Measured scan of single mutants.
Amino acid sequence: MPSETPQAEVGPTGCPHRSGPHSAKGSLEKGSPEDKEAKEPLWIRPDAPSRCTWQLGRPASESPHHHTAPAKSPKILPDILKKIGDTPMVRINKIGKKFGLKCELLAKCEFFNAGGSVKDRISLRMIEDAERDGTLKPGDTIIEPTSGNTGIGLALAAAVRGYRCIIVMPEKMSSEKVDVLRALGAEIVRTPTNARFDSPESHVGVAWRLKNEIPNSHILDQYRNASNPLAHYDTTADEILQQCDGKLDMLVASVGTGGTITGIARKLKEKCPGCRIIGVDPEGSILAEPEELNQTEQTTYEVEGIGYDFIPTVLDRTVVDKWFKSNDEEAFTFARMLIAQEGLLCGGSAGSTVAVAVKAAQELQEGQRCVVILPDSVRNYMTKFLSDRWMLQKGFLKEEDLTEKKPWWWHLRVQELGLSAPLTVLPTITCGHTIEILREKGFDQAPVVDEAGVILGMVTLGNMLSSLLAGKVQPSDQVGKVIYKQFKQIRLTDTLGRLSHILEMDHFALVV
């Protein structure tokens, strides 16, 4: 994948999101292997301009796509893939009243899908469409860049269908997702969380590099694949309309690839034109409109599966009536509230959605109805927002919020430890010299600072030695090549209790 991002070429006709291997024109390309080798690009942008032909009021008969309808489940399912879809609609009884809503608040519980998330729908649909058009064949390999849930859905379907599955996901995604993927037989590649989507090191860039190296491999490409919004247009939206008897006044959905909100909203605009569509985008993402909503100094966020630093091709923002931004604290607070007060075992993005819903639905009156999409299960986040310690460490809970008995030293300040200034190293000294210094002084790690004293990161003896043994660096290389740029900081005025929580999850903390 090139470091400079080429513009994806656009073909003359058809839909841009065809499933299957992508040609340089962004659509299915038939021909000899030699032709494909000559024409197939190194990668295709996940934010390529959409060429979708959908228009409100256009006859369904003019759609270029294969459409399906929700099917009634048999008493005995032939395999677990038949437990994807037909998820329950559940009334939220307490939270709406707590925040003064007059309307009825309903939750579409997508964590009841077989793999635990709304992404099971698009995973199965992308595979079925690729099999139907002859792209996927027995023994082929599926590769997908994902925040985890699409990966789980694909790995689940691949396990049943017999495909090899490789999932490329950023490091910030939970260990629970990784464990589930491994249990399903998927191979996992992790990428830096802070890598831009168009960087060769991003999950998108690495996935395309693997595709170019592995024979008979395919990126189904949830960011561009029409099967993504079509899955929701054909099934999720129809289920909502049936469950609500066609009567709903507002739908609120958090947005990642945009397939969920695009597919549902398009069908609702056709069948229930008075329904307002509300999009939820986390602070630090750029999906919301108008652009002024996205202006923030924050560039990272903890909530998973929603928000991006690019506009995915499948996201149709014209069908969203209003956007709201959400933050991590309210997302996790509301997710825990949904679990504790409503018994809905949902993930953090569901918290984002409901946090926005109780604001947006203030305009609705008694007798009206708001539906929220709860995308995934708490299963993926047992060591994250479900953990009091994690919430404390991230600053989303305060010590006084917890009532468990603490040891005698818990409320003492870090400054009472009488710490001395640490050994520091410059980023320009060599790895070999740094190892000598650390061994001589008896230290395992040291902060790396520039000549102005600005902290650049941390270097550890173990990481340097393993990097040297693996051949990633040489003793003569500058130590700046092996620094940890993500590390926890703590102030002298913070409590030892807070430091204790940090050290339970990290090997060190830097006192500043």
Rank of each mutant, 00 (worst) to 15 (best):
P2W: 08
S3W: 02
S3V: 15
E4G: 09
E4W: 11
A8L: 12
V10C: 15
G11Y: 15
T13Y: 04
C15F: 15
P16M: 09
H17S: 08
H17G: 14
H17V: 14
S19K: 15
G20M: 15
H22W: 06
H22R: 14
S23F: 10
A24D: 08
G26A: 02
S27A: 10
S27I: 15
L28N: 15
E29W: 13
K30R: 12
S32E: 11
A38M: 07
L42S: 05
D47L: 02
R51G: 10
Q55C: 12
G57D: 11
A60C: 10
S61M: 08
S61P: 14
P64G: 02
H65M: 13
T68R: 10
T68D: 15
K75V: 12
K75H: 05
L77Y: 08
P78R: 02
D79Q: 08
I80H: 02
I80Y: 02
G85I: 02
D86L: 02
T87Q: 02
P88H: 09
R91L: 06
K94R: 12
K94F: 02
K94V: 05
I95V: 11
K97E: 13
G100E: 11
G100F: 11
L101S: 02
L101H: 08
C103G: 11
L105K: 04
L105M: 05
L105F: 11
L106Y: 10
L106D: 02
A107G: 13
K108Y: 08
F111C: 07
F112H: 04
N113L: 02
A114G: 10
G116S: 02
V118T: 13
V118D: 02
R121L: 04
R121C: 04
R121T: 15
R125G: 08
E128T: 09
D129I: 06
L136I: 09
K137C: 02
P138E: 08
D140N: 02
T141N: 11
I142A: 05
I143Q: 02
E144L: 05
P145I: 02
P145L: 02
P145F: 02
S147A: 05
N149F: 07
T150A: 02
L154N: 02
L156Y: 04
A157G: 11
A159R: 11
V160S: 09
C165S: 06
K172I: 02
S174H: 02
S174C: 02
S175K: 08
V178G: 04
V178F: 13
D179L: 05
D179K: 02
D179I: 02
V180F: 05
R182D: 06
A183D: 02
E187M: 02
H203P: 07
G205D: 02
W208E: 05
R209C: 08
I214R: 05
L220S: 04
D221A: 04
Y223I: 02
N225T: 07
A226I: 09
Y233G: 05
D234M: 10
D234L: 09
T235Q: 15
T236Y: 02
A237E: 15
E239F: 02
L241K: 07
Q243T: 14
C244A: 02
C244G: 04
D245V: 09
D245C: 14
D249N: 04
V252W: 15
A253C: 06
S254V: 11
T257L: 06
I261R: 02
G263A: 02
E270S: 05
E270H: 10
E270A: 09
C275Q: 07
C275S: 14
